[in-house]
């Protein structure tokens, strides 16, 4: 039951993009086609879950025992950056097909603030390892859901007649606002 609440809350109620404003750059950047949106969501899900496990272990077994919590930001970002590189190298060797699908998105992920954000939030919310993993995975699903819905809408927006000034980013942002409004309907469920 506890896990269910974490999942529902992370996907719908506190959607990472539309309610917490994390990972807006890829949300606006790779949402022009559904295909790329799916690829990006896959890469984010993979890295986010993995990064949360690793950063959690670092917090609990390195930073906490040595009481150097103030090094959290530096160590987490370094770990995430090297983890992304590592994932890229391993994927290339082990599963070229998956690498083909996710490859181009992996370097972009280092600067996706949702990854670092979720890693820090997991520590702040004092989850245990399993709860943290569930939380990270569900957050990534929420990211994917928002991204894919948004990409679907944007594909249609291309055909719409718009005033010149609104074309491109402005209308995308306004659409995201309306989407965020729709997601607000979920608040109060948990």
């Amino acid at each position: 039951m506890e896990y269910l609440i974490i999942i529902i809350s992370a996907i719908f109620v506190n959607n990472v993009v539309l309610a917490q404003f994390l990972g807006i750059c890829p949300f606006l950047g790779v949402s022009k086609k559904i295909g790329t949106a799916v690829g990006m969501s896959g890469a984010v899900t993979f890295v986010m879950t993995l990064a949360t496990i690793v950063t959690y272990l670092i917090q609990k077994f390195v930073l906490d025992p040595l009481s150097i919590g103030y090094l959290q930001t530096i160590s987490f970002i370094l770990v995430i950056a090297s983890l992304v590189q590592l994932v890229e190298i391993i994927l290339k060797k082990v599963s070229p097909a998956l690498y083909q699908a996710l490859g181009v998105f992996l370097p972009l992920i280092t600067t996706n603030c949702a990854i670092l954000g979720v890693a820090i939030l997991t520590i702040q919310k004092e989850y245990n390892l399993l709860e943290g993993v569930v939380y990270a995975f569900a957050t990534a699903i929420g990211f994917g859901l928002a991204l894919i819905i948004f990409a679907g809408i944007r594909e249609h927006l291309d055909l719409a007649k718009l005033p010149k000034g609104l074309k491109g980013t402005p209308i995308a942002l306004i659409t995201a606002g309306i989407l965020a409004m729709a997601f607000m309907g979920f608040s109060g469920i948990v």
Binding site: G165, P170, I174, G177, M181
Partner: peptide, 25 residues
């Protein structure tokens, strides 16, 4: 209240960028 909540951020920024685009053009 909408403008203080999450959706308002997107909408306000969207219109601000549209205005700046017009000015720059």
């Amino acid at each position: 209240l909408l403008f203080v909540l999450a959706p308002g951020a997107f909408i306000a920024l969207g219109y601000l960028i549209a205005v700046i685009n017009q000015i720059n053009r």
